Deep mutational scan, measured.
Amino acid sequence: YQDQEQRILKFLEELGEGKATTAHDLSGKLGTPKKEINRVLYSLAKKGKLQKEAGTPPLWKIAVS
């Protein structure tokens, strides 16, 4: 689980600052079920590491501290 968090954070960091992506996109790029990706995304957002942008589907990006 920790491993997934690292992979997602790394992927988003590599996208570049301010760039956002969807759970669907992450799921495809990382070869992980979207349900699992979503769980990790919401967990990271709760920890303040990610920012969720409203929309359908929601967009995710690295939180700027």
Results as ranks from 00 to 15, higher is better:
residue 36 E to C: 13
residue 54 A to T: 09
residue 11 F to C: 14
residue 25 D to S: 08
residue 25 D to G: 06
residue 40 V to F: 12
residue 50 L to C: 15
residue 26 L to H: 00
residue 25 D to V: 13
residue 32 T to Y: 13
residue 44 L to N: 01
residue 44 L to T: 01
residue 59 L to K: 14
residue 11 F to P: 01
residue 29 K to M: 13
residue 48 G to Y: 00
residue 52 K to Y: 07
residue 47 K to S: 11
residue 38 N to M: 10
residue 41 L to S: 00
residue 42 Y to I: 09
residue 64 V to L: 08
residue 32 T to L: 14
residue 19 K to A: 15
residue 5 E to C: 09
residue 22 T to H: 04
residue 6 Q to G: 10
residue 28 G to T: 12
residue 19 K to V: 15
residue 47 K to M: 10
residue 34 K to Y: 09
residue 8 I to T: 04
residue 36 E to P: 03
residue 5 E to P: 03
residue 37 I to P: 00
residue 50 L to Y: 00
residue 65 S to W: 07
residue 34 K to G: 05
residue 23 A to C: 07
residue 23 A to P: 02
residue 4 Q to P: 10
residue 1 Y to H: 06
residue 60 W to Y: 06
residue 15 L to T: 06
residue 61 K to V: 01
residue 20 A to P: 10
residue 2 Q to V: 05
residue 61 K to G: 04
residue 64 V to W: 05
residue 43 S to R: 14
residue 41 L to A: 01
residue 27 S to D: 01
residue 55 G to P: 00
residue 52 K to T: 05
residue 61 K to D: 01
residue 6 Q to Y: 09
residue 39 R to C: 08
residue 24 H to M: 15
residue 15 L to A: 10
residue 24 H to W: 13
residue 55 G to Q: 05
residue 14 E to N: 12
residue 7 R to L: 08
residue 55 G to E: 04
residue 42 Y to P: 01
residue 43 S to I: 12
residue 58 P to I: 04
residue 42 Y to N: 13
residue 16 G to T: 04
residue 31 G to S: 13
residue 45 A to R: 13
residue 39 R to W: 05
residue 20 A to N: 05
residue 32 T to E: 13
residue 55 G to R: 04
residue 61 K to M: 07
residue 28 G to Y: 12
residue 55 G to L: 03
residue 58 P to M: 04
residue 25 D to L: 11
residue 62 I to P: 05
residue 39 R to A: 11
residue 9 L to R: 02
residue 2 Q to S: 11
residue 21 T to P: 02
residue 48 G to H: 03
residue 8 I to G: 00
residue 54 A to G: 13
residue 6 Q to I: 12
residue 37 I to T: 05
residue 44 L to Q: 01
residue 38 N to V: 03
residue 2 Q to D: 06
residue 45 A to I: 05
residue 55 G to I: 02
residue 38 N to K: 14
residue 40 V to C: 15
residue 26 L to V: 05
residue 27 S to K: 04
residue 2 Q to T: 14
residue 3 D to E: 13
residue 4 Q to M: 15
residue 5 E to N: 02
residue 37 I to Q: 01
residue 2 Q to M: 11
residue 25 D to F: 15
residue 17 E to R: 10
residue 19 K to T: 13
residue 39 R to K: 08
residue 1 Y to T: 04
residue 6 Q to V: 10
residue 63 A to N: 11
residue 11 F to K: 09
residue 16 G to N: 03
residue 65 S to L: 07
residue 41 L to T: 01
residue 19 K to G: 14
residue 21 T to F: 14
residue 36 E to Y: 11
residue 4 Q to G: 05
residue 3 D to T: 08
residue 51 Q to T: 15
residue 36 E to M: 15
residue 44 L to A: 02
residue 31 G to I: 04
residue 31 G to Q: 14
residue 64 V to R: 09
residue 17 E to D: 11
residue 30 L to Y: 03
residue 22 T to K: 01
residue 53 E to H: 06
residue 64 V to P: 15
residue 34 K to M: 10
residue 17 E to S: 11
residue 48 G to S: 02
residue 57 P to M: 03
residue 23 A to L: 05
residue 39 R to V: 07
residue 31 G to F: 08
residue 52 K to V: 09
residue 13 E to I: 07
residue 42 Y to R: 15
residue 50 L to T: 06
residue 51 Q to P: 00
residue 24 H to R: 11
residue 25 D to Q: 15
residue 47 K to D: 11
residue 57 P to K: 04
residue 4 Q to V: 05
residue 43 S to E: 13
residue 59 L to Y: 10
residue 16 G to P: 15
residue 8 I to Y: 01
residue 1 Y to P: 05
residue 30 L to R: 00
residue 30 L to V: 05
residue 38 N to R: 13
residue 25 D to I: 13
residue 22 T to L: 01
residue 15 L to F: 05
residue 14 E to V: 09
residue 1 Y to L: 09
residue 13 E to V: 09
residue 39 R to T: 11
residue 45 A to S: 11
residue 51 Q to A: 12
residue 53 E to N: 09
residue 34 K to E: 14
residue 57 P to H: 03
residue 3 D to H: 14
residue 4 Q to K: 12
residue 21 T to K: 03
residue 35 K to M: 09
residue 63 A to M: 06
residue 58 P to S: 07
residue 25 D to A: 13
residue 44 L to V: 00
residue 55 G to H: 05
residue 36 E to R: 13
residue 11 F to V: 12
residue 10 K to Q: 12
residue 6 Q to R: 12
residue 7 R to E: 09
residue 1 Y to R: 05
residue 60 W to S: 02
residue 16 G to K: 04
residue 57 P to G: 02
residue 48 G to F: 02
residue 11 F to T: 12
residue 14 E to Y: 05
residue 60 W to N: 01
residue 10 K to L: 07
residue 38 N to L: 03
residue 12 L to M: 14
residue 38 N to T: 07
residue 24 H to L: 02
residue 53 E to V: 09
residue 18 G to Y: 05
residue 22 T to S: 10
residue 20 A to E: 06
